[in-house]
């Protein structure tokens, strides 16, 4: 059963190669999503129930710094799942956006945390965070 499920997914990914164009409709939709909330994460699963270890790590880093974020579950929206990769020219999920700007995936968030720069980063973007100037009230 498992291998039978794998086949359509893999074929689907090949059709949506990085060179394919993003429709203007979808681009407008993503533009809207990433500007609607200060911190947006496109992830596999939800904040409450991440379905992938990388998505979970992003959530854990943001939770640790008490940064609130809006989650979009790409597993429930295949158009968004492929579209977001083209939008940012970044081939993997999760993807983190702050104030409408692409920041990176799980490795980058963890590195920012380990390097101690994540608090300054959120301060710079005027996003409240635990160890920053502006805390959650």
């Amino acid at each position: 059963m498992l291998s039978a499920r794998l086949i359509p997914v893999r074929i689907g990914q090949r059709f949506c190669s990085a060179t394919a164009q993003l429709s203007s409709e979808l681009k407008t939709k993503i533009d809207g999503i990433i500007k609607k909330d200060p911190v947006v994460v496109f992830m596999k699963g939800t904040q409450k129930e991440p379905m992938c270890g990388f998505s979970r790590n992003v959530k854990l880093v943001l939770d640790h710094h008490q940064v609130t974020f809006k989650d979009y579950n790409v597993l429930e929206d295949s158009e968004l799942r492929e579209g977001i990769k083209k939008y940012s020219d970044w081939p993997t999920i999760p993807q983190v956006y702050v104030k409408g700007e692409f920041v990176g995936g799980a490795d980058i968030l963890i590195q920012m945390h380990k390097d101690g720069e994540i608090s300054d980063f959120f301060d710079g973007k005027q996003v409240p965070n635990k160890y920053g100037n502006q805390k959650l009230t």
Partner: peptide
């Protein structure tokens, strides 16, 4: 390198 995250079961999705 940093350790990789534990699987959450969604690898086939």
């Amino acid at each position: 390198p940093a350790p990789s995250p534990a699987c959450r079961g969604g690898g086939h999705l």
